[in-house]
Design a protein around this nucleic acid. Structure first.
Lengths: 248, 248
DNA sequence: AACCCCGGACCTGTATACAGCCTACGTCCA
DNA sequence: TGGACGTAGGCTGTATACAGGTCCGGGGTT
């Protein structure tokens, strides 16, 4: 009965992978029976996974029943990032206003120091970017933990469940584009400033910084979409619907 | 196949009612078989409803399997309201920055005018408060619509699925407490100012106003909890765990 | 008297059968 | 040739049977 090895979880993971990889295209109906063969699970856990993915925002319920893969246009990508930044900003403010104890500060400072060390050692490349991703995610989850609100944490969890909204969604792009290398420096300075604001209990500043920090993701996304080469590095790129008509 | 009359929806509604009414207490395990008799649906739609309620935040998954009713302490109530206000604030900013067309403005102004008329006619009491609730919710959903982002709209939908977080959660309390009557006037002035900010494309102001607007809910909640008489008027009051030990 | 072990009831996860609905294709008629 | 109707296939919603795990209580032992 280990939940991590349950059929439901297996179905959820495989199905999410199928959607993100683009094997199921936006708008396409996701029928259950073909997936039963494809995923090797029966309909019951499969349906549970479908319901979860709908709540997650990757699927849309069809009026007549069943689900379809959801598509996202460029505006929705930016909105998703802004939502994430806004919620993380709120978390930063909560954390700052509560005040941090020494132990919390140590953990944060350690994280920032490790990032410093990593960035000072060598450039982030497509080969070693996963170390950066780990540290970056640690920083973000530390801040969320410090906000100490399950309601907020769950809401953020849901926001980043859209693959292109997460804090580390575009690290791969950054690593691949030389013109994006400076973003690492900027991001790390923001980390440092956020830490400082948290320490000084400057809630408003912490919030604003965290929001702006998320907007780096937006800039990376814009860069990524402009280059044919990096476009496919965007997580969940298969879900993106590019406008065929001229944008207003 | 009408989804509104499906067993799943029926189970979802009845189960939510059972939780909010306090018949199922926080921490209590929600076993499926007893509910099959109680709700008159089989386990399959019941389980679907359980999964949805977990995503909604009313249930917690138990490690060994199954679900338990989630409890909320006072801090979480405030956090939920703040999250809602923050997201609605973002919606207001999006709407303002996009710019409204004449038709949008008409709809908003009509809504505000109707609220003016209602408030001018007579005091809001526990008997006629539902008219106010309808108009208030219309104002809020208009703003959300104008933000024109499904990602954001879904996130807000989820935020207000916690019963005490919704924009109209405390109207009943307001109506019952004489000292809260001025809140109607204040709220309506905020509506007016938000409309003005949207019209002038003042995104930042619209956002700040919407946030502050949500904080009225917080003030109402504080009032409600202080009065033994109104405490039970708080939606989902059965889910609230009051601290027994002294708060840090 | 306290602790440990064993047994049974209960509960969830999973698979599958069945019924009703929607859809799409083919055919027939105007 | 185009449109409308009927039928067949497939799909989802629902119910239920079965297997494995969990938890609680009682009895025995130290």
């Amino acid at each position: 009965m280990d939940p991590s090895s349950s059929q439901t979880v297996r179905a959820l993971l495989k199905l999410r992978e199928l959607i993100l990889s683009g094997e199921l295209k936006p708008g396409e109906r996701v029928s259950e029976l073909p997936l039963v063969d494809r995923l090797g699970v029966s309909r019951t856990p499969l349906r549970a996974a479908l319901v979860r993915l709908e709540e997650e925002g990757l699927l849309d319920a069809i009026l007549t029943g069943g689900f379809a893969v959801r598509g996202f246009d460029e505006r929705e990508l930016y909105a998703a990032i802004e939502v994430r930044g806004t919620l993380e900003g709120l978390a930063a403010r909560f954390a700052a206003e509560r005040g941090l104890v020494a132990q919390d500060l140590v953990a944060l400072k350690e994280c920032v120091a490790e990032l410093d060390a990593l960035l000072g050692r060598s450039a982030i490349t497509t080969k070693n970017f996963s170390d950066y991703v780990k540290l970056n995610e640690r920083f973000h989850s530390l801040v969320i933990d410090l906000a100490d609100s399950q309601v907020l944490a769950r809401q953020i969890e849901r926001a980043v469940s859209l693959p292109f909204a997460s804090a580390s969604a575009f690290v791969m792009v950054q690593a691949a584009l030389p013109e994006a290398q400076t973003m690492f420096t900027i991001a790390q300075d923001q980390h440092r400033c956020i830490l400082q604001a948290l320490e000084a209990r400057e809630g408003s500043r912490a919030e604003a910084l965290m929001r702006e920090h998320a907007r780096l993701a937006r800039r990376n996304l814009e860069l990524a979409l402009r280059n044919q080469r990096t476009r496919l590095l965007v997580p969940g790129s298969g879900l993106i619907r590019f406008r065929t008509t001229a944008a207003a």
